[in-house]
């Protein structure tokens, strides 16, 4: 059986939904969700880790800045560098960036509002451990809910991400009229002003993925706007079985 760890920090909100997504993806008993505690430097033998969303340590200092130093994160960084698949969702993405597992940073939404809405994303890279179940170019609908969701990185990092196809998800945004280009980065069309409309990225190996929107909230029609998010959890089970 494939074991997928789900970390709980003080202030984590979405660990329960992430664990449910793992169980639903492995509904024939193929996968087990293993709870991991922030204070334990122990991954309990899991095959992959989900760093879920919420407000770890109250988001004090910066979102993810304190969680990065939690004992469990030292183990996650070590395992990730050995090739273990890791998914960071929302606060989890912020933590992976603060940890240095993914480049760039997430800063305050350009519009200064907490954004909470169902958001269309385009799958730009289906070669990662977490996105193989999608068609490249597919558009999926998942909830987005955050205050610090604007992805930024320096120009060299952005060039590297784009050049290597490491942008995994992009917000689907209406193209502005000619002359309105500025609006795209001022939160008018974009949910948060993220550079290049980046919603999620991967590391060079395709095994570490982070995204701001919440696939674990879109796994069945009863509780989400779609079941489009389930593909991420099915994908990693495929990757682990194939390994």
């Amino acid at each position: 059986m494939t074991r997928v760890g789900v970390i709980t920090f003080p202030g984590t909100l979405d660990d329960v939904d992430a664990a449910r997504a793992v169980r639903l993806a492995g509904r024939d008993g193929a996968a087990e969700a293993v709870p991991l505690w922030h204070a334990d430097a122990d991954l309990r033998g899991v095959d992959a880790v989900v760093v879920p969303g919420g407000f770890s340590y109250g988001d004090y200092l910066r979102a993810g800045a304190i969680a990065r130093f939690a004992p469990v994160m030292g183990e996650v960084v070590r395992a990730a560098r050995r090739g273990m698949p890791v998914l960071g969702i929302c606060n989890g993405f912020q933590i992976l960036c603060e940890s240095g597992l993914l480049p760039g940073a997430l800063v305050r939404n350009a519009g200064l509002h907490f954004v909470c809405r169902d958001q269309w994303l385009r799958v730009e890279n289906n070669a990662t451990a977490w996105t193989s179940r999608y068609e490249r170019g597919a558009e999926i609908l998942v909830p987005l809910k955050n205050m610090e969701g604007r992805y930024v990185a320096d120009a060299a990092t952005l060039d590297e991400l784009e050049g290597e196809g490491r942008v995994v998800f992009r917000y689907v945004v209406d193209e502005p009229e000619p002359g309105q280009a500025l609006k795209r980065h001022l939160g008018v069309d974009s949910p948060n002003g993220a550079l290049n409309h980046i919603a999620g990225i991967t590391d060079p190996t395709g095994r570490i993925v982070g995204l701001m929107p919440h696939p674990e909230h879109a796994i069945d029609a009863l509780t989400g706007p779609s079941d489009d998010g389930l593909g991420m959890f099915l994908s990693v089970l495929d990757a682990l079985v194939a390994a």
Partner: peptide
Amino acid sequence: MPKQEILDPQGQA
């Protein structure tokens, strides 16, 4: 301080 090239919407507000 936020780097000069980083948009600072709080300061703008």
